[in-house]
Design a protein around this nucleic acid. Structure first.
Length: 568
RNA sequence: UCCGGGAUCGUUCAAUGGUAGGACAUCGGCUUUUGGAGCCGAGUAUGGGGGUUCGAAUCCUCCUCCCGGAACCA
């Protein structure tokens, strides 16, 4: 494979400091350990959906390859047929593509290496470095020793090479039931690192594999697969998470004993986020017990959940880049993620006016039947986004939050006798309040100042600006207001006898059925994102059917007023 | 308890023997037809003790705390 040109150097005056992985790579480059090559890989097990934590690894591996002009492979670590499925392969590929990365033709599967792995196992047996062990798993556990006591040698440890070869071949032939025998590496039962106490290389598993079918009934373990797969693919830096640190000596042992290309394993801290959980097991509980609607529920930190929520791939990539890579366990504040999507959407999302919780406004001095077409800017951050027309008429809707019968201090929206600016429109004044028998406000009677369209009155200052929708032309839609799934910063921190379930936010989803939308939203397509002015960013959900639109709240706008109001 | 890691503002990442810095969060101000966005400013950190050095977050040493490890999972 030819090397690519490194990505264009960023401006030298703004030199970004290197993370520890880049420092290691630079050392390798300087020493020439792998020539001048950088070749990484992202190695998911196809046994679940990808989440934001995987995104960190994906971004790291692919970006490093790009930065150094190398390559990044996609390799499925599919050595456990009892847990893996084709469905997951597809979703993983889709998620990586959506994030914006391309593995080109380098899509590999550990299962493609099974034959080579088998031959390498034979070699180790012949070299006296592996043996077939008949100890059942519970016995094997006893022989392994404990944290403080060394293990002891299996009684099968000194079988002859011939016997081992014979037994291992018969394991492959399917002569023995699951669990009857394993192939182990002969290392050191007294090693302080458990992974070196004669680790299992192969187990018997009469299970159908999603790619190799029934060809095999013995499957290699992770430790006997991963390093060699890296080796076969001529990987240079094999980047994984911290929990594999203890496996590195074994990774190195196999490469050495097999005398094959030997990549450098480098471990980094996985991503943790506040107010969420990040494990397949917990996702499964959330889905199975109905806390969420599925793996792609917009509250889930899965890639598919974030996608459905409306997050942009750019913002996720930028976030991953921003949080950096290090070895200390950290919990990243989820607001940092939210800020990244806000920042991106602020630049690209068209603005529209939507009233979530409508209250009718009648402008009594505005002619009945008259409709004015007002011009509204699509995106103040992007002049090229142009403008659109919004109809204005005698009857409108405004949000309930934008009116207070008895205003609190510093409230500068609408209240009796007070004025407010209708965004892109006129200044109106609330003259009276209409209530029903229950005392609930059903309507506001107002008057408008015709001389305030596009200009500020000279005799007074009107500070408040609110959004609105013309009643007759309004569209209706379902709006799903998503909030964080957990109320606790760390959902796993619980009282005795409880678990993360007890921290689930019962109000993480609030559905609004008949929100009022400005008519320009007609024809909005699933996947489009908008800023509802003064409210937040919203994504047209796939549940939308033609004119029956469904919007997901991606994230709210920063709400300074809410902050002030909640303080008092 | 054994082995392997880790410890810097509230959070996260820098500073690689030479003024501890940025971002987010917080607080204050300016500006604004989004209480949005933007702009300006403020406060807050080297886990602890010893040592080396003119000088230590950085090197040495002892201690403390946190994380991971005893699947025929990855």
């Amino acid at each position: 494979m030819v090397d690519r040109q490194p990505a264009v150097e960023s401006s030298p005056e703004k030199e970004k400091s290197l993370n520890f992985v880049e420092e290691i790579i630079n050392d390798h480059l300087a020493s020439g350990r792998f020539g001048q090559r950088v070749h990484t890989r992202f190695p998911p097990e196809p046994n679940g959906y990808l989440h934001i934590g995987h995104a960190k690894s994906i971004v790291l591996n692919f970006s490093l390859a790009e930065k150094y002009g190398g390559f990044c492979n996609l390799r499925f670590d599919d050595t456990n047929p009892s847990k893996e499925e084709e469905e997951y392969v597809q979703s993983i590929k889709e998620d990586i593509k959506w994030l914006g990365f391309d593995w080109e033709d380098r899509e590999y599967y550990a299962s493609d290496y099974f034959e080579q792995l088998y031959e390498w196992a034979i070699k180790l047996i012949k070299d006296g470095k592996a043996y077939v062990c008949d100890l059942p798993s519970d016995k094997a556990r006893e022989y392994r020793g404990t944290l403080t006591e060394p293990g002891k040698n299996s009684p099968y440890r000194d079988r002859s090479v011939e016997e081992n070869l014979d037994l291992f071949e018969r394991m492959r032939e399917g002569e023995f039931p699951d669990g009857a025998r394993v192939l182990k590496a002969k290392i050191d039962m007294a090693h302080p690192n458990f992974n070196m106490r004669d680790p299992v290389m192969y187990r018997i598993l009469h299970a159908r594999h999603h790619r190799t079918g029934d060809k095999w009934c013995i499957y290699p373990m992770y430790d006997f697969t991963h390093g060699q797969s890296d080796s076969i693919e001529k990987i240079t830096q094999s980047i994984c998470t911290l929990e594999f640190e203890n496996h590195r000596p074994l990774y190195d042992w196999f490469c050495e004993k097999l005398d094959i290309h030997h990549p450098q394993q480098i471990e980094f801290a996985r991503l943790n986020l506040t107010y969420t959980v990040m494990s397949k097991r917990k996702f499964l509980i959330l889905v199975n017990e109905g806390f969420v609607s599925g793996w792609d529920d917009p509250r889930m930190p899965t890639i598919s959940g974030l996608r459905r929520r409306g997050y942009t791939p750019e913002s996720i990539r930028k976030f991953c880049d921003y949080i950096g890579v290090a070895k200390n366990n950290s919990i990243v504040d989820v607001t940092i993620l939210e800020n990244h999507v806000r920042e991106h959407l602020n630049a690209i999302a068209p603005r529209v006016m939507v009233v979530l919780n409508p209250i009718k406004v009648v402008i009594e001095n505005y002619p009945e039947g008259q409709v004015e077409q007002l011009s509204a800017v699509n995106n103040p951050e992007d002049e090229s986004a142009g403008s659109r027309i919004v109809p204005f008429s005698r009857e409108l809707y405004i949000d309930r939050d934008d009116f207070m019968e008895v205003p609190v201090k510093n409230y500068f929206r609408l209240s009796p006798g007070k004025e407010v600016r209708l965004r892109y429109g006129y200044i109106i004044k609330c003259d009276s309040v209409v209530k029903n028998d229950m005392g609930e406000i059903v309507e506001l009677r107002c008057s408008y100042d015709p001389d305030t369209l596009g200009k500020q009155p000279t005799d007074r200052k009107v500070k408040g600006v609110i959004h609105w929708v013309s009643a007759e032309q309004a569209l209706e839609a379902e709006i799903r207001l998503y909030d964080r799934l957990f109320l606790a910063e760390n959902p796993d921190k619980v009282e005795e006898g409880q678990d993360f379930r007890s921290h689930v936010n019962p109000e993480s989803l609030q559905v609004i059925q008949h929100a009022k939308l400005e008519p320009s939203l007609k024809g909005a397509q699933a996947g489009e994102r908008f800023q509802f002015e003064r409210i937040g960013y919203f994504h047209v959900d796939q549940d939308s059917q033609g004119d029956d639109l469904v919007f997901n709240r991606i994230t709210s706008l920063r709400d300074t007023w809410a902050k002030i109001a909640s303080r008092s």
